[in-house]
Design a protein around this nucleic acid. Structure first.
Lengths: 204, 204
DNA sequence: AGGTTAATCGGGGTAAAGTCCGTTTAGCCT
DNA sequence: AGGCTAAACGGACTTTACCCCGATTAACCT
């Protein structure tokens, strides 16, 4: 195993040029996504050429095509998590756990909708362990909030996984593109459904 | 658009040789999966050659590599749904909706664990509309059961999507391969968590 | 049966993903 | 500063998904 221990995590560590190139590649990828309006137009050759780097570098950095989108998503997610960890209540700390959980779900739904193209493109059926999408941060946060709530006898770890899936799944797997062009505010609808789901879980 | 209206659905319709070849390709794919112990070893060229057919045929039938796995999954799912629609209670009809919902979840978890490799391989970040995995049958069934339960004021459609995600998501996205090699009975654990989740939803 | 047609088949061609290894260079040690 | 080494770079190479279109054939009609 020569692959780095944290192949795709949040590795702003290592040699200076590696870190620089990684950032440069992510920035270039965002440019290309913005210009070409779609993830399909992003090829590894194209990215390497536009970034002025070799193809080997791109693959060593991200491992796979989906890896680029996973890295982009994690990048965005990092900024998002700042809001959650240190932002104003009820999303940030200072509110009751139930309120925070509801606020978190709504915020995450908005986040997923905003980044749904990248999120979808980050799915890769060939990777045995589904990275990126996994959002360990999301899961851990939900887990932490659940622990503060009166849920006697529940398997909190598994419940956190289920709720994470209930948040991300609709956007990743079950809602088609057409659902977002309809006039109805889909974001509000999913947000309400989340709120309702969580409230019912706590017995109102 | 020359693509057939039901490109990947359950199309045992059309010309006789097309239907025959489709079945033959699916069977050959299963053989290769069984022998090579893994979805990665299945290539389109290899499948075509082993089946004694042209590569073009494979692609016309399944559209994409992921399409093969989606077709395999739908095939298995068909047999599974028979149990649900006409099998013995509580999975089949005849039991209270809550019991059926719990039984369905447990059965689906078992199904997803059994087929997790194929299910994972059916994910494809390039398809704008996530087919196959979508399991409209699963969603519709859950939706139907929810309608029989005392859930006043809920958005049943969205709740069904969330619960479908809570069932499929863990296996598709959030549980890594290592979770299944551990001694702990993961299937039972997920099944219990599902039961608990649904019970809480109904207020005990 | 024979002819017509529209769909399927076949396999060579293209482009993009992913690999390899010789070359270069950042970071460190003296 | 100068050298050492492990890591990163680059781009040619291989593999594979996916496309195209002429050849073939099943289904239907008379």
């Amino acid at each position: 195993m020569e692959r780095p221990a944290l192949p795709l995590g949040s590795p702003p560590t290592g040699r200076a040029d590696a870190v620089r190139n990684r950032k440069h590649l992510l920035a270039t990828a965002r440019e290309m996504l913005a210009e070409q309006c779609g993830a399909d137009g992003l090829t590894m050759d194209g990215l390497a050429e536009r970034a002025g780097l070799g193809k080997g570098t791109v693959f060593r950095r991200f491992g796979t095509r989906a890896g680029i989108f996973q890295a982009l998503l994690e990048d965005d997610e990092h900024a998002f998590q700042e809001q959650v960890l240190a932002g104003p209540a009820p999303l940030g700390p200072g509110a009751p756990a139930l309120d925070r959980l509801i606020a978190y779900g709504r915020a995450r739904v908005a986040f997923m909708i905003r980044n749904r193209d990248i999120a979808r493109a980050s799915l890769d059926g060939r990777q045995p362990i589904p990275a990126g999408t996994e959002s360990p941060l999301s899961r851990a946060h939900i887990r932490m909030l659940l622990a503060q709530m009166p849920l006697d006898g529940a398997d909190l770890e598994m419940l956190a996984i289920q709720l994470t899936a209930a948040l991300d799944g609709p956007l990743l797997l079950y809602l088609s593109a057409s659902d977002f062009t309809e006039p109805t505010g889909i974001e509000e609808r999913i947000g309400l459904a989340w709120q309702d789901l969580v409230r019912r879980l706590c017995g109102t």
